[in-house]
Computed example of a mutant assay.
Amino acid sequence: MRPASGIPCMLMRGGTSKGAYFLAADLPDDADERADLMLRVMGSPDPTQIDGLGGAHPLTSKVAIISPSTEPGIDIDYLFLQIAVDSRQVGTTQTCGNLLAGVGPFAVERGLVAPSASEAAVRIRLMNTGDTAIAVFPVQNGLPMYDGDASIDGVPGSAAAIEIEMTGGSRPLLPTGNVSDMVGGHRATLIDNGMPTALVAADELGIVGDESPADLESHSDLAAAVERIRVLAGALMGLGDVSGQTVPKVVLLSPPRLGGAIATRAFIPTRVHTSIGVLMAASVAAGVSIPGAVGESLAVHSDADAILIEHPSGTFPARVSVNTDDLGTWHARSMSLRTARKIFDGTVFPRPHP
Rank of each mutant, 00 (worst) to 15 (best):
I229V: 13
S218W: 03
V278T: 15
A114E: 15
S220L: 12
H353I: 13
P255G: 04
T347E: 01
I262M: 07
N128K: 04
A120E: 02
M145Y: 03
H273S: 03
H353M: 13
A318M: 06
M195S: 15
T48Y: 08
H353W: 06
H186N: 11
G19C: 12
M127P: 00
L308W: 12
T60A: 10
R110N: 05
I50P: 04
A286N: 02
P175S: 07
L205K: 05
S302R: 09
I229Y: 01
D36W: 13
Y146R: 03
V284K: 04
D75H: 15
L99H: 08
I83L: 09
S243Y: 03
A293Q: 06
P172W: 11
D77I: 01
M12S: 01
R228W: 00
T189C: 03
G130S: 07
S180A: 11
I76P: 03
P72H: 10
L81H: 11
R110L: 03
T189W: 08
S212P: 03
V226N: 02
A340C: 14
L253W: 00
V320Y: 11
P115Y: 00
P256Q: 06
S321I: 10
E310F: 07
S321M: 08
L205Q: 02
L222P: 11
G104I: 02
H311Y: 04
L143A: 14
A121R: 15
R265S: 08
V90Q: 02
M237G: 00
L308K: 06
L298G: 02
A224S: 14
M12F: 14
I229S: 07
T347D: 00
G15I: 12
L174N: 07
D77K: 05
A133F: 00
L23V: 02
A117D: 13
G238A: 03
Q94C: 11
G55Q: 05
I268L: 14
M145C: 14
D192G: 01
G238F: 13
R341H: 02
F137V: 09
P68S: 04
G111T: 06
N323R: 15
S283Y: 00
H57T: 12
I207R: 06
K18G: 03
D30G: 07
G52S: 06
G91F: 15
A293E: 02
V113M: 12
G130L: 07
Q245T: 09
V288A: 01
G314S: 12
G54Q: 04
V63H: 06
P269M: 09
A150S: 08
A133N: 09
H57R: 13
A306E: 14
A299L: 04
G15Y: 09
I307C: 12
D30N: 15
P68I: 03
I83N: 13
V179A: 09
D149Q: 14
G240W: 04
S170E: 13
G184K: 09
S302W: 11
L11N: 06
P115R: 01
A101I: 07
F267P: 13
V284A: 07
D131I: 02
G142D: 07
D147W: 00
V251P: 04
D26Y: 03
A160F: 12
V183P: 02
F267C: 13
F267T: 13
E211K: 00
A332P: 04
V136M: 00
R40G: 05
Y21R: 00
C96N: 10
D215V: 11
